[in-house]
C-alpha cells in the first residue's frame, strides 16, 4: 500500500511528466489557452493512459518477453496506443454521447502524446523488471493526473497572462515557455522527495 502511495506522489508531484520529465510538452503548450479545454485534455489523457498501462503490461509480460521480442517494444507499444485511441473513440461515440463530446476532439491528438508511450515504457523499465499490473495502472493514472494538474494550472496562468500587460514580443511560445519554466521551479521542491 505504501508502495502505491509512493508511486502516486511520485507521479503527480515528484516526477511530474511535464515539469520534470518533459513528456507531453506538445499538448501542454498547445492545448493550454483555456482551462476548460486543458481539463478536457487532461481527462482524456488520464483515461487513455490508464488503459494503455493495462494493455501494454499484458503485451510485455505475456507476448514480448516469452517470445524474446523485447526489441520490438517500441513498435508494439505505439501500435497498441494508436489502436487503443481509435477504439476508445469509437466506443465512446457509441456508448456515451456526452463523454464523447467532452473528450472526443482530444483523442486523436493523444496518439502522438509522448507521455503515453513514455509511461508504458517506464512501467517496464521501473525497478526490478518492471511494475506489476496494479502498480503499472496506478503509475499511469497518477502520471496522467500530474499532467492534468500541470496543464490546468498552466492554462489558468495563461488566461491571466492573456489579459495582463505582458509585452507583445512575449506573446505566444516565448512567454508560454518562460512561464512554464518558472512554474517548473515550484515543482523542483519535490525532487528528492522519493528515492
Amino acid at each position: 500500500m505504501s508502495n502505491l502511495m509512493l508511486i502516486v506522489v511520485g507521479g503527480v508531484l515528484v516526477n511530474n511528466f511535464v515539469m520534470s520529465q518533459f513528456l507531453g510538452i506538445c499538448p501542454f503548450l498547445g492545448v493550454s489557452k483555456k482551462t476548460e479545454t486543458a481539463l478536457g485534455m487532461g481527462m482524456a489523457v488520464t483515461f487513455v493512459m490508464a488503459i494503455a498501462s493495462l494493455f501494454t503490461f499484458f503485451v510485455q509480460r505475456y507476448l514480448l518477453i516469452p517470445l524474446q521480442l523485447e526489441y520490438m517494444q517500441t513498435i508494439a507499444f505505439i501500435l497498441i496506443i494508436a489502436v487503443l485511441v481509435q477504439t476508445v473513440e469509437i466506443v465512446l461515440k457509441k456508448m456515451s454521447r456526452a463523454l464523447y463530446q467532452a473528450l472526443g476532439v482530444y483523442l486523436p491528438l493523444i496518439t502522438t502524446n509522448c507521455a503515453v508511450l513514455g509511461v508504458a515504457i517506464n512501467n517496464t523499465t521501473a525497478v526490478d523488471g518492471g511494475y506489476n499490473l496494479i502498480q503499472s495502472v496506478v503509475n499511469g493514472t497518477a502520471g496522467a493526473l500530474g499532467f492534468t494538474l500541470a496543464i490546468v494550472a498552466f492554462a489558468a496562468i495563461r488566461e491571466r497572462l492573456a489579459v495582463s500587460e505582458m509585452p507583445k514580443w512575449m506573446d505566444g511560445f516565448p512567454g508560454a515557455l518562460i512561464a512554464a519554466g518558472l512554474m517548473s521551479i515550484a515543482f523542483q521542491g519535490f525532487s528528492g522527495l522519493i528515492h
Binding site: A153, A156, E159, R160, M183, Q188, G189, L193
Partner: peptide, 21 residues
C-alpha cells in the same frame, strides 16, 4: 524530503502557480 529540509519557498511558489486557478 531529506534534500530540502526547508520547503517554505517551494510551498509558496507552488501555491503561486495555483493562484489563478
Amino acid at each position: 524530503n531529506p534534500s530540502y529540509p526547508e520547503g517554505c519557498s517551494f510551498a509558496i511558489l507552488f501555491m503561486n502557480v495555483l493562484t489563478p486557478l
